[in-house]
Structures are given as structure tokens and as C-alpha cells.
Computed example of a mutant assay.
Amino acid sequence: MTDEARLRVDRDADVVTARQKGRELAVLAGISGSDLTVVATAISEIARNIVVYAKRGEIVLKIAQNGHRRGVIVIASDQGPGIADIAMAMRDGFSTGKSLGLGLPGARRLMDEFEIVSEPGNGVTVTMTKWSR
């Protein structure tokens, strides 16, 4: 496997593929133990949001290097309806759909770094990183 993977996300099976590829890349980055499950779970939450709210998008997975630390960067983007109020969307329990509203805030808690950029009508880009310990 290379240091980068680019995955199309437009159906439930793609969520599973993204989880698996993210976990594989995390292993290559030196992430181990329960942190592998953490990375896979965060990817799953973000990928599922793409399928449910935007219908299609992509996830780019990369190995990150910062000095002696290695990790995995996840960049999820779509061209869906976007998020009108990011602060509200990052609150536990808020959902514009029929979910529990835990996906975005949960992914933020699971990863070491998390950034979300959105403009209504222009999609969403989530960038998150998990560093090896």
C-alpha cells in the first residue's frame, strides 16, 4: 500500500472500504492498539455523513510526518448542501436528519486534530489527524 489513498464515497459499501483503508494506513503510520479502532470509527462517521447528507464525495487518506511523529490525515470532502451553522452542527445531539447527532462531535473527540470548513451550497471539507503515540 502507498502512503496515500483516494476513495470515492457514494454508498454504504464505500464507508466500509474507507474504514478499512484508513485502518491499514494508520498501521503503516505506526498507530496501534485501540487507536486503530478510533481512526476507523472517526472515518466511518464522516464517510456516513457524506452518503446521508451529500450523496457523494471523496476521502483522501495520507500518512503525516511531524518531526519524529507519524500519523494519518483524513480529508473528507463533498459538494453537498453544506452546513449552515457549524457551531450548532458540532454540538452533541444536533442533527438535520434522523440521526443521534453524534457523528461530527464524536469524530472531533476521537481525533487529535479536527477542522471543518463549510459554506451553504458549497459542500463540506473535514480534515482530521491522528498521531501515533
Rank of each mutant, 00 (worst) to 15 (best):
T37N: 15
G106D: 04
T17L: 15
E119F: 07
A47I: 06
V124K: 10
V72M: 08
T96N: 05
D3S: 07
A107D: 07
M88V: 13
A29F: 08
V74D: 02
P120A: 04
I46Y: 04
N122L: 11
A107S: 12
D35I: 08
M111P: 07
G103R: 06
E113S: 00
T125A: 05
V51H: 06
I86E: 01
V15S: 03
A47S: 15
D85E: 13
L102E: 06
I59N: 04
N122H: 13
S99P: 00
T96E: 15
D12A: 13
A54Q: 00
R133C: 10
S99W: 03
D92T: 06
I43T: 01
A64W: 09
A84S: 15
I73V: 15
I43Q: 10
L100N: 06
E45F: 07
D112N: 14
I46E: 12
D10P: 01
R48Q: 10
A5P: 03
D12V: 13
T96V: 14
L28F: 12
L100H: 04
G80D: 08
T125S: 13
S77F: 03
L36M: 12
A42S: 10
A5M: 09
L102G: 00
I46D: 10
I46H: 13
A107W: 03
V27H: 08
K98N: 05
M111F: 00
R8P: 00
T96I: 15
L102V: 07
T125W: 03
T2M: 09
G101E: 01
G97S: 13
G101V: 01
A47H: 02
A87F: 06
I83E: 09
V60P: 07
F114N: 02
R11V: 02
R8C: 04
A18Y: 07
G121E: 08
R109V: 01
A5T: 00
R48M: 12
A84K: 11
G80N: 10
T127A: 12
A26S: 15
G80Q: 08
V74P: 05
V27M: 14
I83D: 01
A107I: 03
A84M: 08
R69P: 00
N49D: 13
D92H: 05
I31Y: 09
V9K: 06
G57S: 05
I116E: 02
A42K: 04
T2I: 14
E4T: 05
V16G: 01
M128H: 03
V74F: 04
V51P: 01
G57W: 03
G121I: 09
R70W: 10
L7A: 06
N122Y: 11
I75C: 05
V124Q: 14
G93I: 11
G57C: 07
R133F: 13
L102H: 01
K98V: 01
I75K: 08
V72Q: 07
A76N: 08
V39C: 08
V38W: 02
A54T: 04
N49T: 09
V27I: 15
A107V: 00
T96M: 13
W131G: 14
F114P: 00
G101W: 13
R91D: 09
S34C: 02
K55S: 11
G80S: 09
R11F: 00
S118H: 08
M88G: 02
D12F: 14
P81Q: 09
R109K: 12
G93W: 01
G33L: 05
P81Y: 03
V15N: 02
V74M: 12
R69M: 11
D85F: 10
